[in-house]
Simulated assay, not measured.
Amino acid sequence: MYSTRHTSSNARGSDLVRQIVVLSAVSFMLIAAVIGAGAFGNTAVQDQQGGALDTSGSYLAPAGPAFSIWSVIYLGLIAYAICQALPRQRASERQRAMGWPIAVTMVLNGLWLVAARFGTLFLTVVVIVLLLAALGWAFRTAVVTRDPRGGVVDSVLIDGVTGLHLGWVTLATVANISAWLTTVAPPSWEDAASAIGVVVLVVVAIIGLAIAWRSGWRVAPALALAWGLSWLAVERLTGTPLSTPIAITAVIVALIVLLPPAVVSGLRLIRPSVD
């Protein structure tokens, strides 16, 4: 389990509040996810907003299987919420730094689903941009406060899960904005859709590399981003709308964002002193 190192000897009243808030945040997120999945007779996310959030809603939407990554992220967040609630984690300095940022990301995650169900497409854009910013804050905090002695569980449930969440939402933000623009842009813009999509993916490559560089070449964000980009390529080759240029660019960008952190991570396994 988590290491007990970097733990203050004195718990504060705010520590218990933090633990309860994290558990409440994950509960809210899961309830929103169940409703968003179409339970209780509700419309599933991909069918909401007039189908704008479906895989065919824009040129930058990934294929359906890409969204299975949410299962991994949700399971990781559930496990984190349970582990951080353990009594020995109450006064942990690491948890004091990470609990609030992660709680914010879980609340915004759930709010996005609420916005998709009851709000407007533009509101989903606003919420997902806020979620991306919160995840950037959380992941940066995780990197800065990382304890090499914290153990595998600490690394996976904090750095790993937050990194996957950040990487996936980076691409999801692009897809969400693209879906919104598709509904408001003049039909004539579709003639330039492939070119615009390629330019946007180049920007995604820059962002992906920037995240990797600023995090010391952590691999989790790159894995999620490459996963989404790969399924984006599949959708543009086999689904609608079709776009071979976007598909090829997505594959290239996936390799660009994944290879550097993967190589560095491999070197760290061979030579643990590499950082």
Rank of each mutant, 00 (worst) to 15 (best):
residue 110 G to D: 09
residue 128 I to Q: 06
residue 109 N to P: 01
residue 135 L to D: 02
residue 160 G to E: 11
residue 84 Q to K: 04
residue 107 V to L: 11
residue 76 G to I: 03
residue 141 T to W: 01
residue 77 L to F: 11
residue 174 V to M: 13
residue 151 G to R: 12
residue 155 S to Q: 12
residue 106 M to G: 05
residue 129 V to Q: 05
residue 170 T to A: 14
residue 146 R to Y: 15
residue 91 A to I: 02
residue 92 S to H: 05
residue 163 G to V: 02
residue 132 L to E: 08
residue 122 F to S: 12
residue 172 A to L: 14
residue 164 L to M: 07
residue 94 R to Y: 03
residue 171 L to K: 09
residue 82 I to C: 04
residue 170 T to Q: 07
residue 166 L to C: 03
residue 157 L to D: 06
residue 151 G to E: 12
residue 153 V to M: 13
residue 130 L to K: 09
residue 159 D to C: 00
residue 92 S to Q: 08
residue 91 A to L: 03
residue 97 A to I: 08
residue 114 V to E: 00
residue 127 V to Y: 07
residue 171 L to Q: 09
residue 160 G to H: 08
residue 144 V to G: 03
residue 73 I to F: 03
residue 89 Q to T: 13
residue 86 L to A: 12
residue 77 L to N: 15
residue 80 Y to V: 00
residue 81 A to C: 05
residue 78 I to S: 01
residue 82 I to L: 14
residue 86 L to W: 04
residue 171 L to W: 08
residue 73 I to V: 09
residue 109 N to H: 04
residue 109 N to A: 02
residue 172 A to V: 13
residue 75 L to R: 05
residue 78 I to N: 03
residue 96 R to E: 00
residue 86 L to E: 01
residue 77 L to A: 08
residue 108 L to M: 05
residue 73 I to W: 01
residue 96 R to S: 02
residue 114 V to P: 05
residue 159 D to F: 00
residue 95 Q to Y: 07
residue 143 V to N: 13
residue 120 T to R: 04
residue 157 L to W: 02
residue 99 G to E: 00
residue 112 W to N: 07
residue 120 T to S: 15
residue 92 S to M: 04
residue 139 F to P: 03
residue 151 G to T: 14
residue 136 G to H: 01
residue 119 G to M: 13
residue 77 L to V: 02
residue 97 A to R: 11
residue 88 R to Q: 14
residue 163 G to Y: 05
residue 143 V to Q: 14
residue 106 M to N: 12
residue 129 V to D: 09
residue 87 P to Y: 00
residue 141 T to A: 14
residue 172 A to K: 10
residue 151 G to L: 11
residue 102 I to Y: 06
residue 116 A to Q: 08
residue 153 V to H: 01
residue 162 T to Y: 00
residue 81 A to R: 00
residue 85 A to T: 08
residue 161 V to I: 15
residue 78 I to G: 02
residue 135 L to H: 02
residue 171 L to Y: 11
residue 161 V to T: 13
residue 87 P to R: 04
residue 73 I to Y: 04
residue 170 T to I: 09
residue 92 S to A: 11
residue 174 V to W: 11
residue 135 L to C: 08
residue 90 R to A: 10
residue 82 I to T: 07
residue 138 A to Q: 05
residue 115 A to S: 13
residue 125 V to Q: 12
residue 86 L to G: 01
